[in-house]
Every structure is written in C-alpha cells, then in structure tokens.
Design a protein around this nucleic acid. Structure first.
Lengths: 169, 169
DNA sequence: GCAACTGTAACTACATTTGTTACAGACGAT
DNA sequence: ATCGTCTGTAACAAATGTAGTTACAGTTGC
C-alpha cells in the first residue's frame, strides 16, 4: 500500500496548535517542528481551514490557530480533511465484463472496502486532539518544558537521523 | 491517501481460482478477467505462492490454483500477502527533535496507527474467500452460467468503460 | 511605505505502482 | 530429443501522487 504521511503531518500540525493554546503559529514555526518546507505546511493549512479546523490570519503578526477547542476535533475530522480516498482502491482499470467473476467482483469488493473504511473511521472518531495532547504530556514532562517557540528558532536543520521511530516507513 | 489496487486485484485473482475449483488457471486467463497484463498477474501469483495461498505449475499444461480450500483463506491472509505496510505512514522525514511536540508525536501516532491497522485486520479476518464467492453467486446467477474460460478466449480487449463501478477511484 | 505574514501557482524531485518486452528454464506431448 | 506451452524474473517505460522549492501577489500592523 502506498500510504501517505499527510494524516500524520496534519495531526502533528494541529497538535502544535493545541499545544500553543490561542497563540497563532506561523507556517515557518510549524515547518520547523515538522521538519519540512513552510509552503507544504501552508498548503495543508488551507485544506484544514476549508474543513473549518483552523483559522488563519494573513499579514504581519498573522498565523494560524485552531478553529475550535481540541476536545471538539476528532482524528476523524483530520483524516477526512486531508485524505480524500478510502483505505484501498479498486482495480485501476475495470475488470473484464464478459467474465462472470470480473463483472461482479467490484460490487462485492466495494462492500468489503466500505466495511474497512467504516472500521477505520470508528477508531479515528474515538480520539480527539485533546487526547493526543494528553498522551504527549507524560513524554514531554520527562524531558523539558512547554514551549513550542523554543524549538522554532534558527534555520531548519536537516536532522541527522533519517530512520523513523518505528519500522512503519 | 495513495492506496494501491493490489489487494483488490489479489482478491479478484484468488476468487477466480476458487471459482475454477481445482482446474489450474493460466496467467493469461486470469489477466483477461482482471483486464491487465499477464506478467502483472504472474508477479502477484509469486507473492501469493510465497504466502502459501496458491500453488503454480510451470511448463506446458501448467497454471495456478488455490493451495487450500477457499474457506481457509481469509481476506487478511490476502492482505498480508500483497500489502507490505500499514494503512498510514508516519512523517517522511523525522520531526524536529528539539521541539517538545515533534520529538514525541511519533510515539503517540504510532499507537494510533497501530489501532487503525488492528481494526482493519479484524474486519479482513472475518471474511474468507468462500464468503466472497458466496456473495458473488447471486449476481452471477442473474446473468449467465459458471464458466471462467467462456470469458477468457480471444485477445484482451481494452474495455470501453473506464469509469469504475463506484466513486472509489 | 515597509516588513512580516498567508495563499497560490508553477515547477522539480522522488517514490511507488502498473504495464511491457524479453528471455531463461520447466514440463508434457509426440 | 525437440517442440510448443507454460511460469519466473529481469529490466525498463509510463503513470500517478506526494513532497520540496522558488517566486510572487495580496493582506495586515506599525
């Protein structure tokens, strides 16, 4: 499966904003934390704004913050905002309609894939941004204080460790 | 999400073999039904053989058939045979370790993504190839008889309808 | 007006899947 | 034994989708 990291990044971005409370974050600051380009972040912020998850302010002293409280944003909201399609796709080209299996497998598969999508959505609907922040806190308190900006000074540096925290990638 | 159609195609292929009973199918026949190239099918059959879902016979009169009864092959077996990674990925590049959120978000996300993967696997584990065939039959009986080879004569034709049966693609 | 932002277009770079051609090797039939 | 029919696999092209980059118009606060 060629999964994308859009969901992971979106959760990261919104978690930063939940962490920053009401203080608007600049795309450059967010990009520092995510370790990517600010335009990539702004693109994603536009999508999140279209789904009414963030509000952005143009101009000097601008930035973005959550549109609602973290407890009112579920991971499903985020998923739906940035991932357009379901977990699996059907055939790239339609199967052969002259084959008794080929002509009907799409219908059967659709039912199955809908079940899969529903299962995913149920899981994501059960966790809010607030839960994510809560899960984050124990880790953080063990290391340092609560400040996003402390990490967002200076130019972006290419982090040495390219390996991901898990074998997921 | 950049989902692949590998799972859909794999289910299609194995359904054909369940349908054909013990008769070995040639990659060319299968490709006709799936509406793709025979090499694509053979590649997939190799993966399915590695997971002991099919057995293939080289040489003249060769072909592939199921390695076990359809009721002993779950969709989870198929999924695991052809999809290497989970539903979502983490960040392409690791987040900034100097940021309190960035350094810990991976751990939290991993837990969430594991929950998602588990949910998907639970759904897929609950359906076998036999169930797929059973769901297929009502559709088929409404149209024509039970013959794969009837649809696998002649050269592959580029099917006119490029639109998929659902809006999934 | 100026500096600091967002929003967006245009383009490149990458990664992954799919499609294709080509060919070595296995195997049954004769 | 060799011939035709298959699988297995390599090598490469095409298609798709995401991420990264540069550039710039428009907005806002000072």
């Amino acid at each position: 499966m060629s999964t994308s990291s859009r969901f992971a990044v979106a959760v990261h971005v919104l978690t930063l904003m939940a962490w920053a409370d009401e203080e608007p974050l600049k795309s450059e600051q967010v990009a520092e934390s995510v370790n990517t380009n600010a335009v990539v972040i702004r693109r994603m912020l536009c999508e999140l704004a279209e789904s009414n998850l963030v509000v952005s302010q143009t101009g000097s002293m601008g930035g973005s913050k959550l549109a609602r409280l973290p407890e009112h944003i579920t991971l499903l909201d985020i998923y739906q905002a940035v991932e357009s399609r379901g977990v699996f796709s059907l055939h790239r080209h339609p199967p052969n309609p002259d084959c008794p299996v080929g002509v009907n497998i799409g219908t059967v598969l659709n039912d199955v894939l809908d079940e899969v999508d529903s299962a995913v959505e149920r899981v994501l609907a059960n966790m809010t941004l607030r839960d994510v922040v809560a899960r984050l806190k124990p880790c953080v308190s063990a290391t340092n204080g609560k400040s996003v900006s402390a990490a967002t000074n200076g130019k972006r540096k290419q982090v040495a460790a390219r390996v991901q925290v898990s074998a997921r990638n």
